[in-house]
Nucleic acid binder design. Structure first.
Length: 485
RNA sequence: GCCCCCAUCGUCUAGCGGCCUAGGACACCGCCCUUUCAAGGCGGCGGCGCGGAUUCAAAUUCCGCUGGGGGCACCA
């Protein structure tokens, strides 16, 4: 049997990291078994679903490298991949269930139902539909229908027990008496989530459903529906939720939850995938960095944890740094150019700037945790600097002034103006002034880079070039004058 | 109130009865290297929620408790 899995988000917002992990696990299982990965939009909630959200979700999935075989944008053999375009299928299912007596029409007013539900809650009683419309006679039903009274279709939950055979948790038994006759079709004729997923998954021949834990208690309802519709249900696996530090489901309160936000902050998709994969799954007792290929090769449900995982941005950051350090030169350049260009520091088609950047990259790559870290580390190459407020005091004092003055003078005759020579000159200067290297180089660093934290000084100076270095030393000298007043 | 899930260092986890004086990674703290910051090296801190039971032997099995979470919609 060919594995067919799907990711079915409701397009009411951006792709959430939890959703991304669900998508990833579905993707990995499909790919590891040579199956299909399908994208389907659960947009039956018309009031909250938007086209922008559909586009945004697809964009984020593409960024993550989770490509699908069938989906709203590329179609496929199983009809439309948006629920709003499959309404007729749900209607047919309801009609058939109605005809078989496995479902019935409910004419109750939603408002009234909500009211009695409230009352039940207050009375600390389990709220459940009282099946009052199940008792309606055929005559009454046709009379109400003739009157044009709106109705919803409820599924008639049979007696007995329903067991969910979860691939991660094992068998979970539910007593059907704890399940109410749920609505499958609203009075406006649209299908409800439980009906729509089941019909779609049957129709799309989905073999495995991997989804969040929060759907576990919906599963028996869906199992009942499969049975009533005469279909073999897929295999289910409920993934533990991703939670915040307080153990509550991850939400905006905990920080960024939108995949797009991580992209903007300079995270690499590969790092994100690696991190997400390990949030609930492990290969063995020691693997932390694992490639997509290996993920596909080794992913299995048996090694998925059943315990909720806490989102840990620190670990994601560390992982991102690992990926930045391992990125091939050209790739790193591309990624960094994107951010530098966006910040207005360079133009992507400026070949001279690109050349400079290529020389800087080796100096900064192990200093970057995020791609955006390249900005403060490279800005001084592309624009004039004025020492930050916090660094001004480095220029203060007689020692600093003399170091700047002397090195300015000696550097004039440094030829060629390359790192080893620059270093030699500066070290000699420092020792002639009886200064420790650390103490002596900081003023120079601030003068040249504008900051007390920078890429390696001598190499940076070489790349910057002699004239600009001398000019910056001059400026710093002037500044030092002012600071000392 | 009812149903369901979960429980190893602060965090992600390994562990599927003896290999565990519980292993790895992140974070944290030292030290080394060092022109700043990183990177790197070395070392350290730190955990089986509690109580029963089974067994020669339990982190590992069973039961109870406690704690956390999810669900109980004409939302998905």
């Amino acid at each position: 049997m060919r594995f067919r899995l799907r990711f079915a988000p409701s397009p009411t917002g951006f792709l959430h990291v939890g959703g991304a992990r669900t998508a990833l696990y579905n993707y990995l299982l499909a790919r590891s078994r040579g199956g299909d990965f399908i994208l389907r939009m659960e947009d039956t909630d018309k009031s909250r679903s938007t086209e922008e959200a559909i586009a945004a979700i697809m964009e984020d999935l593409i960024w993550l490298g989770l490509d699908w075989d069938e989906g709203p944008d590329k179609g496929g053999p199983c009809g439309s991949y948006r629920q709003t375009e499959r309404l007729h299928l749900y209607r047919e299912a309801v009609d058939s269930l109605l005809a078989q007596g496995k479902a019935y029409r409910c004419f109750c007013e939603p408002g009234q139902l909500a009211q009695s539900r409230e009352k039940a809650r207050e009375g600390q009683v389990t709220p459940r539909y009282d099946r009052r419309c199940l008792g309606l006679s055929d005559e009454e039903v046709s009379r109400l229908l003739k009157e044009g009274r709106p109705w919803a279709a409820r599924f008639r939950v049979p007696e007995g027990k329903t067991v969910v055979n979860d691939l991660i948790r094992g068998d979970i038994e539910f007593d059907n008496s704890t399940i109410e006759d749920f609505v499958m079709q609203r009075r406006d004729g649209t299908a409800t989530y439980n009906l729509a997923v089941v019909v779609d998954d049957i129709y799309m021949r989905i073999t495995h459903v991997l989804r969040g834990d929060d759907h576990l208690s919906n599963t028996p309802k869906q199992l009942l529906l499969y049975r009533a519709l005469g279909s073999e249900p897929p295999q289910f696996a409920h993934l533990p939720m991703i939670v915040g530090a307080d153990g509550k489901p991850l939400s905006k309160r905990h920080g960024d939850v939108a995949v797009g936000r991580y992209r903007e902050q300079g995270f690499l998709p590969d790092a994100m995938i690696n991190f997400l994969a390990l949030l609930g799954w492990s290969l063995d007792d020691s693997t932390t960095i694992i490639s997509r290929e290996d993920l596909i090769k080794h992913f299995s449900l048996e090694r998925v944890s059943s315990k909720p995982a806490t989102w840990d941005t620190d670990k994601l950051i560390w992982m991102n740094q690992q990926y930045i350090m391992a990125l091939p030169e050209e790739r790193l350049e591309e990624e960094v150019v994107f951010f530098l260009e966006r910040a207005g520091l360079i133009r992507g088609d400026d070949s001279q700037a690109r050349e400079t950047l290529r020389r800087i990259l080796p100096l900064i790559r192990e200093r970057m945790k995020l791609l955006t870290d390249a900005l403060p580390l490279t800005a001084f190459f592309f624009q004039e600097v004025s020492p930050e407020i916090g660094s001004l005091d480095i220029l203060r004092g007689e020692q600093a002034r003399r170091m700047l003055e002397l090195s300015r003078l000696k550097l004039t005759s440094a030829d060629p103006f390359v790192a080893p020579i620059i270093e030699e000159v500066l070290r000699e200067t420092a020792s002639s002034l009886n200064m420790k290297p650390k103490q002596a180089f900081q003023p120079v660093r601030v003068a040249v880079t504008g900051s007390r934290v920078s890429p390696p000084l001598f190499e940076s100076m070489e790349i910057l070039g002699k004239s600009r270095c001398l000019a910056r030393l001059d400026r710093a000298l002037e500044l030092a004058e002012e600071v000392n007043l």
